[in-house]
């Protein structure tokens, strides 16, 4: 058995392994995460297109964004999209489902929760395809067929109610995140609290309001903050379902606008510079919000000192 002294000596040698542990991840993150953050900012100061020239125009792109009358509309769209999806689904429905599924038979409850996971793990193109089929304008498409029984006329949902479809599509995916977190939080409430309340004659609704909701205040705040940022920068499903339409920028959000300018130009005249300037704004929002999480949710507490080194 080695003595304490030899262990201390060996520790110096062990430090050598640190590089082995860290270098692969650090390299990847530096080149494909940190460097792109800087590059996004730099490209945003140029008018780069497919000639790939670094032609510095400094803040012109940003001045243009300020005078772009559609940028204002798109920003409003983005707020509307984030707010609605978040309120009705990512937080609202997530909370309702986790409360409902924890108050019924455990097996049934987890079956429902499992079903709600399905949209999230379904590949986005397949999931979007399902909605596109369901929302079609023909009378035999799913939505029109169901509403037909209640006497509604068939309509093309994507054209007549684009926001409804966009929010539903995103919401049915987004709900599961909050659902998982809330469920975990609800389950961690000690049985005694609830039993005690029941003995005191509290109804289920009273238990939910006075015991459960106050106890999941922090998870609620966390999900809200976290999902706000995710929604702010997400556009994949919108791209697949309405592609920003119908009409002029009807459902175009900021991130999609950036994508469209940089990668989806009919004439092949792309705007890497302008698109990067738009993205830079999102990057800055992203960095600020991530730092806020860090402070607000005391992630620093997770950074406890490693015990093994304390020899």
């Amino acid at each position: 058995m080695a003595t304490l002294t030899t262990l201390r000596i060996r520790r110096k040698v062990f430090k050598g392994y640190l590089a082995v542990f860290l270098i692969p991840s650090l390299t990847f993150i530096a080149v494909f995460f940190l460097l792109p953050v800087i590059l996004t900012f730099l490209i945003g100061l140029t008018d780069m297109d497919y000639s790939f020239k670094w032609n510095w125009i400094w803040l012109d792109n940003y001045i243009k964004i300020l005078s772009d009358r559609w940028a204002y509309k798109i920003m409003m769209n983005t707020f509307f999209y984030v707010f609605s999806t978040l309120t009705f689904f990512n937080v609202g429905l997530a909370l309702l489902i986790s409360i409902a599924t924890t108050h019924v038979n455990e097996l049934v409850g987890s079956a429902f929760r499992a079903l709600w996971l399905l949209p999230r793990i379904t590949p986005s193109t397949v999931y979007a395809l399902l909605w596109l089929w369901a929302a079609r304008g023909e009378e035999y498409s799913l939505f029109n067929w169901i509403l037909g029984f209640f006497g509604f006329k068939p309509i093309d949902w994507r054209l007549t109610h684009p926001w409804l479809i966009v929010i539903l599509v995103n919401g049915f995916v987004g709900t599961s995140f909050g659902m998982i977190i809330f469920t975990a939080a609800l389950k961690s409430i000690p049985e005694d609290y609830i039993r005690a309340a029941k003995v005191d004659g509290a109804s289920t609704l009273q238990i939910i309001r006075h015991i459960e909701l106050p106890l999941i205040k922090w998870p609620l705040l966390f999900v809200t903050a976290y999902q706000t940022l995710s929604l702010f920068t997400s556009y994949e499903y919108i791209l697949l379902v309405t592609n920003g339409g119908p009409g002029l920028y009807t459902t175009e959000v900021w991130a999609l606008y950036s994508y469209h300018l940089a990668f989806a130009q009919y004439g092949g005249i792309v705007k890497f510079g302008y698109g990067a300037a738009l993205a830079t704004i999102l990057v800055i929002i992203g960095i600020i919000m991530s730092i806020i999480y860090l402070k607000m949710f005391r992630f620093s507490e997770l950074m406890t000192e490693p015990k093994i080194e304390v020899v």
Binding site: W70, G247, L248, Q265, Y266, G267, G268, I269
Partner: peptide, 16 residues
């Protein structure tokens, strides 16, 4: 391509 894109956006805005 820029000419074309601008015209498309405006025409679409008129129609909608």
């Amino acid at each position: 391509g820029d000419y074309s894109r601008i015209v498309f956006n405006i025409l679409r805005a008129v129609e909608t």
